[in-house]
Design a protein around this nucleic acid. Structure first.
Length: 106
DNA sequence: GGGCTGACTGACG
DNA sequence: ACGTCAGCCAGCC
């Protein structure tokens, strides 16, 4: 049985480029939405094989790993993938939130 | 084995 | 609309 963080990595790895996912969403895929915190914690380890920059908070903004006086590195990476961020540092979750096995295409 | 931490979320003022 | 408070659980010391 894989550890919790290992499952988190598995899901985050499924997130395609140009798409984002929230901690709560990842936790929900794991079965418990309350585990959102632990998801963030798993990202903190930041394994190289996991695109942690695509994981953002429910507000559509990126958390952690940011340096003062500079925009969060993860946000910059997402911009490079095509995700548009507002001046408030938030992206449109309704548009970029990724869902497994889907569709997603209107 | 016990206790502390935390890249979150939802509710309240 | 934003700022603050409390709660939840897995991992690490």
């Amino acid at each position: 049985m894989a550890s919790f963080d290992e499952r988190v990595y598995a899901i985050v790895r499924r997130v395609p480029r140009g798409r984002v996912i929230t901690y709560g969403a990842v936790a929900g895929l794991l079965g418990d939405r309350r585990l959102a915190r632990q998801v963030g914690w798993a990202m903190r380890r930041c394994p190289a094989d996991v695109p942690a920059h695509r994981v953002i908070n429910a507000g559509g903004g990126v958390s952690g790993g940011r340096h003062p006086g500079d925009e969060p590195l993860r946000q910059v990476l997402l911009k490079a993938e095509g995700v548009r961020f507002g001046v408030d540092g938030r992206c449109d979750l309704a548009r970029y939130a990724w869902k497994p096995r889907t569709i997603g295409s209107p």
